[in-house]
Write a protein that binds this DNA or RNA. Structure first.
Lengths: 224, 224
DNA sequence: TCATCAAGTAACCGTTTAGTTACTGTCCGG
DNA sequence: CCGGACAGTAACTAAACGGTTACTTGATGA
């Protein structure tokens, strides 16, 4: 795309820059990444505008292409950063420190509250799944990131099984999918749900009730 | 957008049409709607292309704008039709015909299998929620469509409470949200989930296990 | 049989879009 | 103190986009 290299371009006089030069590569890079996170999560891959990202970041397209290559690579960076965010916070939980039941409850609470606090993460997941994980599959950074969660969850479930409080068929991935399902759907689909059922799902009382519901349902599904 | 009406347009000779004229308004309309459903569910609102819809429908843009006004109205039509589809099928269930427990199990099974058979519906919901129900809120057709579900579900739960098999605090909307959450997340997020956890969620054994899990979890959450 | 009107076609238009180029300002090692 | 590397700017471009116009074709009923 762009020039074909043929001669006689118009030479145009440029006015001196209005804005003060930042000259702070780290800050500019971070600003672009944050602006891109907002733009992609609000508009999806097809709806996001490169110009809008540059403007939101207080810079211009040139810098965006300079630091991230193109729109798709920038999107992948945003997605990777979002996954790193939740998995890093998750690691600090140490769900094996208390009783198995408390550990599972803790993971459920954490996941729900993280989703509630970071709706842009859910939105990015939705966009990525719309495109059948096209970009995530290309990611080289995200192979070892998620195994920690499953390992730790397996340990907690095994301890619960040995103590006789969890059923033997309890599967770690299924437990996590249960927790994530109940949180994801409630938050990401709140707009259509509130519209068609006429109940404001984001009211504090409803949010608190659903939080208790998630913990209750998750434990009920694996308890003996 | 488009012309401003100023004079002297170029008059161009047109070749006779290559394709045989269909001259079947019903068929053309339906073809556009189906093509639009696929295009919007595969690419979202921002990623869908009007040209692509016309081509997929075997017609051209003129007809699309003739029947549906513009891209946004066409999208709303697609969304409304999708909602009518699931709610219509749901009505034929008659979940009150058997025991309360069987009724809830039946609704859970139906919802799961409908989601599995119509991933394009889930995709459209995702797109609509990305835009905070911007178009659904404008819909005049979809006010009374969903109340039937809640009414019937309330009756089944009440019968179960009187029979002493369901807890008194069981809430009809929460029961439906539980069922829908577990089905929606598993299917719509299958691509990222399979990628990061390395388990193929669409394998028959996994699908069957999750189906049983949904029924089990839903009943476990409301049984005394 | 022919006027009329809806169905259908393809070129066209103005705007937007991702991506590029030509150029300027600033810092820092030699 | 100077020259090259890099941060930063804004105008620019080809292509794609949603939407419109000018025109053709076919069916129908007076």
């Amino acid at each position: 795309m762009g020039m074909d290299g043929s001669g006689d371009k118009k030479i145009v006089k440029r006015r001196p820059a209005d804005r003060v030069l930042q000259r702070d590569p780290e800050r500019t890079r971070a600003a672009i990444l944050e602006a891109a996170t907002r733009e992609f999560s609000e508009n999806g891959m097809g709806g996001a505008r490169v110009d809008a990202i540059a403007e939101r970041a207080g810079t211009n397209k040139r810098m965006l292409y300079h630091y991230f290559g193109d729109k798709e690579q920038l999107y992948l960076h945003v997605l990777e950063e979002a996954y790193v965010g939740i998995r890093t916070a998750e690691r600090e939980l140490h769900i094996g420190d208390r009783s198995p039941e408390e550990g599972i409850a803790e993971l459920a609470l954490f996941t729900w509250r993280y989703f509630l606090k970071h709706p842009e993460f859910l939105s990015l997941l939705g966009t990525e799944n719309l495109h059948r994980a096209r970009w995530l599959r290309q990611s080289v950074r995200l192979k070892e990131l998620h195994s920690h969660l499953i390992v730790e969850l397996t340990q907690v479930l095994d301890r619960g099984k040995q103590a006789g409080v969890f059923i033997d068929t309890a599967d770690p991935l299924n437990v996590y999918l249960t927790i994530a399902s109940l949180g994801y759907f409630y938050i990401s689909n709140q707009y259509t749900l509130s519209t068609i059922f006429g109940r404001e799902l984001t009211e504090k009382t409803n949010l608190d009730a659903w939080e208790r519901h998630i913990v209750h349902v998750t434990l009920a599904s694996i308890k003996t």
